[in-house]
Design a protein around this nucleic acid. Structure first.
Length: 581
RNA sequence: GGCCCCGUAGCUCAGCGGAUAGAGCAGCAGCCUUCUAAGCUGUUGGUCGCAGGUUCAAUUCCUGCCGGGGUCGCCA
């Protein structure tokens, strides 16, 4: 039910009829919404695309195609304009019946089957399990989650995944920090937390849990105690992080432990390296030191390298540290190899801006390890700048004075956080103002869009009161005399609703959930605008006194607007309130 | 120095190769004696960082500069 696909097909048919089908490439022909009112409702580039291959003038081709299109009863006007555009307006009856289809499709409207059930893995958040999530993690969390939903709306089989970095030095430090808290829980005075350990209070419960479970036994246990403390701490931190995510309504399908790659008998990292070796992509060699930067302890040594440059990386990458353990990247290769073995050919990783330099090597790894069958897209999320009524919120890691995700959600609620995080492109920095995002005013996009939905609901409440004889059920509205919808504002709204499937597809294809947010903003704006016209011109109001048929038709339109707003907000994980009080 | 991202109206930003580049805010001019719930309507404002290239067509793709940010073996 994508109008643009529908019309593209019709245009291609018209092209074949007008010009014969002698092998011309019709794939580049598209029908798009016209940008300006003066350019009709839809426009196609068919004539311009075909001009060159056919060796004919665009305007001439356009005239021939246009003549063909005029035979289509759904097309009201056809005009050739500019360099060879064919501008179309559709018959009101076309839009009216489209509205009927939208209502019939109900919550399936906008959903695409383009993904055809293909498996996609979206890995996001993946915050280190060393403490609670702070606002910095928030954006990636929301972007990843909304992207996952967006891909589901496009018919993909999506797995939401979290990679737990539970294998490196940081979790060892976490373990040590937990042991200190353990001694504290046993009654020792530990004084100030030493430099280099995690000072946060959130480790106090970990120490208490250890004390409760083990009593004083860990004190003389040796290295084993550290392992126990570490594992306990990681488990409890992950519990906390899950709670943080739950506060954002985020739930992952898979939590993948980095440590699991090397524990439990099989060395999955070694297997991944072997897979690369089998493809001749591993060698012993030396790396040039980084240029333009002083590296005092640079040690030139012969080491095992992955030939990632073969896949577009800048230098080949080491897999084994000088102490003999695997590099983080080696584990990550194994992790992505695992994703490939689980059947994912499309992998999306959502990372913070500071990981930008890591993209090429992971993409190289995915290509290498899958023999070119799989590909990774990496979405980088830029910083979020916090404000309170326009004043920057100071944050310093050193003083531990960072704002946690939980605090933000508690203060402003989930909806403003989720909406604002996708109201920018992920790769552009974003300003987040605690005060503005909760304002109930036109200037606050969250409110503006949610209010549009609430307003649609309000119309129905009003209708039940003022026009109780009109059956406002979805079934009845689907049967309404939609031909009553002739006002330009009404048709305009239907036209906007018609764009929804197209927005879902293009946003899904580009992996850009923010486009949904912008679309919803535009739809809301158009709906509010039409509403406001009813102030000056009561005859345009949805509840049209004394005319049941007209009221029913308009309620059908409002119902469809509500449907699309709710669907779009659902993709973003933002609620669609029935009232804003 | 290498690599990556960004550069569009005074500000914050949209813009999947298409026409005269859009929105919100701010500014300006009206309306707001009351109704459909958090005002409304209109309007000013642009060498799309610069220079080349590809194309019928470039803000969009490519190359090189300029400016801002990030990042740069054995951290994750």
């Amino acid at each position: 039910m994508n109008v643009f696909d529908d019309l593209t097909t019709r245009v291609r048919t018209a092209v074949r009829a007008a010009l014969g089908s002698e092998g011309a490439d019709l794939s580049r022909i598209v029908v798009e919404p016209a940008r300006e009112a003066g350019h009709g409702e839809l426009a196609t580039n068919a004539a311009m695309v075909l001009a060159k291959p056919l060796g004919r003038k665009p305007r001439e081709l356009a005239d021939a195609i246009a003549a063909e299109l005029r035979g289509d009863a759904d097309i009201a006007t056809v005009e050739v304009a500019g360099p060879g555009f064919i501008n179309l307006t559709l018959a009101p009856s076309f839009w009216q019946s489209l509205l009927g289809s939208i209502i019939a499709a109900d919550s399936a409207y906008g959903r695409s089957k383009r993904g055809a059930g293909e498996k996609v893995n979206v890995e996001y958040v993946s915050a280190n399990p060393t403490g609670p999530m702070h606002v910095g993690h928030c954006r990636g969390a929301v972007v990843g989650d909304a992207l996952a939903s967006l891909l589901e709306a496009n018919g993909y089989a999506v797995t939401r995944e979290y990679y737990i970095n539970d294998a490196g030095k940081q979790v060892e430090v976490l373990g040590e920090s937990a042991l200190l808290r353990y001694r504290e829980a046993l009654g020792e005075t530990i004084g100030e937390i030493p430099e280099g350990l995690y000072p946060g209070d959130y480790l106090v419960p970990v120490g208490q849990a250890l004390a409760q479970d083990y009593g004083p036994r860990l004190l003389n246990m040796g290295p084993e105690a550290l392992t126990i403390a570490r594992d306990t701490a990681v488990a409890m931190m992950m519990e906390m992080i899950r709670g943080d995510l739950a506060a954002l309504n985020i739930e992952h399908d898979v939590f993948f432990s980095e440590r699991s790659l090397i524990e439990g008998g099989t060395d999955r990292v070694a297997e991944a390296i072997q897979a690369l070796q089998a493809r001749g992509l591993i060698y012993e060699g030396r790396l040039p030191p980084p240029k333009g930067q002083v590296e005092p302890d640079w040690e030139d040594r012969e080491q095992m390298l992955f030939r990632s440059t073969e896949f577009g990386d800048d230098v080949d990458r080491p897999l084994i540290k000088s102490d003999g353990s695997y590099t983080y990247f080696a584990s990550d290769i194994a992790y992505h190899y695992d994703k490939y073995l689980r059947g994912f050919r499309q992998m999306i990783d959502v990372w913070g801006a500071d990981h930008g330099g890591y993209i090429k090597r992971v993409q190289a790894a995915v290509k290498a390890v899958s023999g070119g069958e799989a590909a990774a897209d990496v979405k980088i999320c830029q910083l979020v700048n916090l404000f309170r009524a326009g004043v920057p919120v100071k944050m310093s890691k050193r003083s531990g004075n960072f704002v946690t995700l939980r605090e933000v959600v508690q203060e402003v609620g989930v909806d403003p956080v989720r909406f604002m995080m996708v109201f920018r492109r992920n790769d552009a920095p974003l300003d987040f103002d605690f005060q503005k995002v909760t304002e109930q005013s036109k200037d606050n996009p969250v409110f503006y869009v949610q209010y549009a939905h609430a307003r649609t609901c309000s119309v129905f409440r009003q209708a039940a009161w003022e026009a109780p004889d009109v059956d406002a059920s979805a079934e009845a509205l689907g049967r309404a005399e939609l031909a009553r919808l002739v006002d330009s504002g009404e048709i305009g709204l239907i036209r906007r609703l018609a764009e929804f499937p197209r927005v879902i597809e293009s946003a899904g294809e580009a992996h850009e959930p923010h486009r949904i947010a912008y679309y919803l903003y535009e739809l809301a704006s158009e709906f509010h605008g039409h509403w406001n016209r009813g102030k000056e011109m009561p005859q345009l109001r949805f509840v049209n006194h004394g005319d049941r048929e007209s009221t029913a038709a308009r309620l059908a339109l409002v119902h469809a607007v509500r449907l699309v707003l709710a669907e779009g907000l659902a993709i973003l994980g933002v609620s669609a309130p029935v009232e804003m009080r």
